Amino acid sequence: MLHIRELTKSYAGAPVLRGVALDLGPGEYVAIMGESGVGKSTLLNLIAGLDTPDGGRVVLEGTDLTRLDDDERTRLRRRRIGFVFQAFHLLPHLTVAQNVALPLALNAIEDGGRVEALLAAVGLAGKADRYPRELSGGEAQRVAIARALVHRPALVLADEPTGNLDPVTATQVLAVLREQLERDGAAAILVTHSERVAATAQRTYVLGPEGLVPRDP
């Protein structure tokens, strides 16, 4: 489902990623760990087509993102990828429900109760009409997770998805994420510094100068 080979990226001549490779099948859920500054967020951005690599390939469901132009990558990302940003990126002028429903609107998908069900699943059933400024950091993170899942993407990318959550809520949100992935047959890549979060994944990799290295169980 996802095939990455020899992915490289530099900024201002400084290498960030070197020869990264990864294969991910439908329903697989992996965690990526590593020290700050090694390029974990950069890797997610390249997989999502938000940035372009200097070399290598990112193939999602048979489509090589590196061969697409900006508009084509945007259309593919809207349809097939859900992204949980570390900084939430909620739209301040939209309510919680409208933020979650945004991927449905962009893809012309009927709600069918998806927004209400996901808000309930992440513990925000009574806050659909609130605005982002009225939410705590943890609540905003849960809205971002619901938004990433609502259109049932093939691949979910999450950058520190539990970084703003208390341990109880983090456990709840991870359980929701796993349930949705299993239901839809989607795959997920989570970037995290948390050993507890990484332990919920099927596989864990460490990103470093030598690329992505499987961590010993």
Rank of each mutant, 00 (worst) to 15 (best):
A101M: 07
L90W: 09
A198R: 10
H89L: 12
E134C: 09
L22F: 07
L174C: 01
T192I: 02
Q202P: 14
P92Y: 11
R183E: 15
Q98G: 06
A144D: 13
D159T: 02
A117C: 11
A187L: 08
L60V: 04
Q141C: 06
G13L: 02
I81M: 06
E160G: 03
Y205W: 10
Q98I: 06
R5W: 01
D159H: 01
D159F: 02
L43K: 03
P26N: 07
V150F: 03
R203N: 11
G113C: 12
I109A: 07
P92E: 09
G56K: 03
A187T: 08
G137P: 03
A87S: 14
V150Y: 08
A175D: 13
A125D: 15
E179P: 00
Q180G: 01
P132H: 12
L104K: 14
I4F: 00
A125P: 09
T8M: 00
H151R: 10
A121S: 15
L207S: 08
L43W: 02
L91S: 11
T171D: 09
V16F: 05
Y11N: 01
H89Y: 15
Q98A: 15
F88K: 10
T52H: 04
R18W: 00
A105K: 14
R67S: 10
R215S: 13
E35L: 11
P15H: 08
V143L: 04
A14R: 14
T200G: 05
S194I: 03
G55H: 00
E61T: 05
L68N: 02
T95N: 12
D51A: 12
T95E: 12
Y131F: 15
Q202R: 14
P26A: 11
P214W: 08
Q86D: 07
E28L: 04
T200H: 11
L174S: 05
R79G: 09
A186V: 10
V84K: 07
A108L: 14
R75L: 13
I47G: 02
H89D: 00
Q86N: 09
G138N: 13
T171L: 04
L24A: 11
A117H: 10
L106A: 15
